[in-house]
Computed example of a mutant assay.
Amino acid sequence: MRVIIAAAGHQRKWGGYLGVPSHLAPLADGTPLLHRTIRQALTLTGDVHLTTPDLPAYELPAGLHPDVAGVTRHLRHEDYTSEYPSTRDLWSTTGRTVLMLGDTYFSDEAIAAIGATDRRDYIVFGRYEGSQITGTPYGEIFAVSWWPEHHDLLDRALASLASVRRVGATKRPEGWLLLRSIQGTPLAKHRVTRRHFVEIDDATDDWDFPADYDRHPATPAVGEPVHG
């Protein structure tokens, strides 16, 4: 299994909140979010790759984890439509690829579910609707999994979606559009199929906006970290 943690995306929604990128926002114990995610990824595999901007803040401390020296960091710029094309050269050609979003807080239970769901299909790990734990009012995608035989399918779907977005037909998030394209469901309909979607409905959540961070129970803004 290869895990790719995508932490090179633009920060327009985050807006420089706290003076750090959302990927490095501190948890209640002071740990940067990304450092926690890297430690979690290393419980799944030693084949961990990280995409980041070329900024010193993203350099990994030697004491982060005994195996942190094996984490490969790849520098990326903001000229990609999403995490999918920005990591295309890193997709595994021999086994399973797991793409994790770097601005997501993952519970340990979510990490276990991602590691255990190894069926050979395109799988999205996310929450279909809003969260009753964090108060986030919308569904989110946290991670995605696929195998080498899905690369051509993904390439074709991404190319098709790029054309749709270029003509301004939609501005919806590419992750949801890609899922709908692969499912064969309408791009404008928020719908998932059991074949391609694993529901994660706990404290796992994406920190796109400062408000997402402030209301999360694992951050200093609220109090004590939740279990996991």
Rank of each mutant, 00 (worst) to 15 (best):
M1P: 11
M1Y: 09
R2C: 08
R2D: 05
V3T: 11
V3L: 09
I4E: 05
A7S: 13
R12C: 09
R12D: 14
K13Y: 10
G15I: 10
G16Q: 04
V20M: 07
P21D: 00
S22K: 13
L24I: 06
L24R: 02
A25G: 07
A28M: 05
T31M: 14
P32E: 05
L34T: 04
L34M: 10
R36V: 11
R36P: 04
R39N: 07
Q40Y: 12
D47Q: 11
L50V: 01
L50H: 03
T51A: 00
T51L: 01
T51C: 07
T51D: 01
E59L: 11
A62V: 11
H65F: 05
D67F: 05
V68H: 01
T72S: 09
T72N: 02
R73S: 14
L75T: 13
Y80H: 14
Y80W: 15
Y80C: 12
T81V: 10
T81W: 10
Y84R: 06
Y84C: 04
S86G: 03
R88L: 12
R88I: 12
D89C: 07
L90W: 03
W91F: 14
T93F: 02
T94A: 14
T94S: 13
L99V: 13
M100D: 02
L101H: 08
G102E: 01
G102M: 04
G102I: 05
T104I: 15
S107Y: 03
E109Y: 08
E109Q: 13
A110S: 13
A110I: 12
I111V: 15
A112S: 12
A112T: 08
I114F: 07
I114N: 04
G115L: 04
A116Q: 12
T117K: 03
T117Q: 11
T117N: 06
R119C: 07
R120P: 10
R120W: 02
R120Q: 13
I123R: 08
I123F: 00
V124N: 06
E129H: 14
S131Y: 05
S131W: 08
Q132P: 08
T134I: 07
G135P: 01
P137H: 07
Y138C: 08
I141K: 00
A143Q: 06
A143T: 08
A143I: 05
A143F: 08
W146G: 03
W147A: 04
P148F: 03
H150M: 11
H151M: 12
D152L: 11
L153S: 11
L158F: 09
L158E: 10
A159H: 14
L161Y: 09
L161D: 05
A162D: 15
A162F: 04
A162M: 08
S163W: 06
V164R: 06
V167T: 13
G168I: 02
K171I: 00
K171E: 14
K171F: 09
R172A: 15
P173C: 01
P173V: 02
E174R: 06
S181Y: 12
Q183K: 05
Q183S: 10
Q183L: 02
L187W: 03
A188I: 07
A188E: 13
K189N: 10
H190E: 15
V192Q: 09
T193Y: 02
T193A: 09
R195S: 11
H196P: 09
E199A: 10
A203L: 06
A203G: 08
D205R: 13
W207P: 00
D208V: 05
D208G: 06
P210E: 06
P210I: 07
Y213E: 09
R215Y: 02
H216T: 09
A218G: 13
P220V: 09
A221L: 00
V222W: 03
H227A: 15
